[in-house]
Structure formats: C-alpha cells, structure tokens
Amino acid sequence: MKALAGITIISAALLAGCESGDIKTAKETVASELRDPESAQFRNIIKTKENEWGVVTVCGEVNGKNSYGGYVGFQRFVNSPPSNRVYMEKSWLTFDDLWDDNCSNS
C-alpha cells in the first residue's frame, strides 16, 4: 500500500511539471499583476489553438490575496504569451467581448 501511495505522489509531481511553455508563461505574467504574486491560485486554464498569425491565447481564472491577506475570489483572465498583455475581468469594461472572442470556442 505504501508503494502505491509513493507511485501516486511521484506521478502527480511529474505531471505537474508537464505544463506547456505558453501556460507557464501566462501564469507567471498573470501572477505578476496581482498584489501578492506568490498567492496566485489558478483553475480552468485553457490554451487556444494558434490563430492565422500563429498567436496562442491562454484563458483561465486566477485568485489572489489582497493587502489584508485574504483571497479576493476567482476572476477570469486572458493572456497572449508573446505580447505578455494581461486582461483581467475586473479591470476591463469590454472583458466579456474579449473573453467571447478568444476563449469561448476553444
């Protein structure tokens, strides 16, 4: 039983390191936009197919801590790793259009 638990832990660790370069870059860029980058929690990360210009977009949700040390809740983001431009749901008035154009049909 201990051997099975050990194999499971090792497998999980190896799979965690198999993140694509675009997703890893996007997570680093998005985290850098937060007040406490080390607190970033991600979920529902998707990588779109390359568009006609070869650009990939990474979409997902991020949660981070505020200045009081409490998590503020998940918000959606859109990032294109080549440009490193981050669009956060709570910061862009036209975010829903951006999300629909880049992330909804992925």
Rank of each mutant, 00 (worst) to 15 (best):
G69H: 05
N84C: 07
N105H: 09
V56W: 00
W53Q: 12
L14S: 15
I46T: 14
V78G: 03
E89M: 00
G70N: 14
S83A: 15
V72T: 13
Y71W: 09
N105A: 07
D101M: 09
K27C: 05
R35A: 06
R76H: 02
D97I: 05
G60Q: 01
Y68F: 14
S20I: 09
V86A: 05
W92P: 00
Y87C: 03
L4S: 13
Q41E: 15
N51T: 06
D36P: 02
G70L: 11
D97Y: 05
D97C: 06
W53V: 14
A3G: 02
K49D: 06
K49F: 02
A3S: 14
Y87Q: 05
L98Y: 03
S80R: 15
W92V: 15
I45Y: 08
L15G: 07
P81K: 01
G70F: 13
T29A: 15
D22N: 12
V72P: 04
N105C: 07
R76C: 03
A13H: 06
D101E: 14
S104H: 08
G73I: 14
P37V: 04
R43W: 12
L14T: 06
F95S: 01
E61I: 02
S20W: 11
F95Q: 00
K24Y: 13
E38R: 12
W53N: 15
E19F: 06
T57V: 13
F42N: 04
G69A: 09
W99N: 02
S32L: 10
W99V: 01
S67M: 11
A26W: 01
P37N: 13
G17Y: 11
D101T: 04
E38C: 10
S104I: 07
G70C: 06
T94G: 01
K49Q: 06
R76T: 02
V30A: 03
G60Y: 01
V72G: 05
E33I: 06
A13T: 12
N79D: 13
K90T: 14
S91Y: 13
T57M: 01
V58D: 03
S11K: 14
R35V: 15
V72I: 15
K47C: 03
T8H: 07
D96V: 03
T29W: 12
K2I: 10
Y87K: 05
P81V: 01
Y87T: 09
K65R: 14
K24Q: 15
D96R: 02
K90Y: 06
S104D: 12
E89G: 09
Y68W: 12
G70T: 03
G54Q: 07
E52V: 13
S11V: 11
A3W: 01
G64H: 07
G73V: 10
K65E: 11
Q75P: 08
V86P: 01
I45V: 14
T94W: 04
E28P: 00
T94F: 05
E28D: 11
G70E: 09
R35S: 13
W92L: 12
I7T: 11
S80M: 08
F95V: 02
A13P: 09
G69R: 10
C59Q: 00
V56L: 08
P37R: 09
E19D: 15
E19V: 08
L15E: 02
Y87P: 00
A16Q: 12
D36W: 14
K47P: 00
N102Q: 10
G69L: 09
E19C: 09
T48I: 08
N66A: 06
T48Y: 02
D96T: 01
I23M: 07
D96Y: 05
G6P: 03
K2P: 04
R35D: 07
M1K: 11
K65W: 02
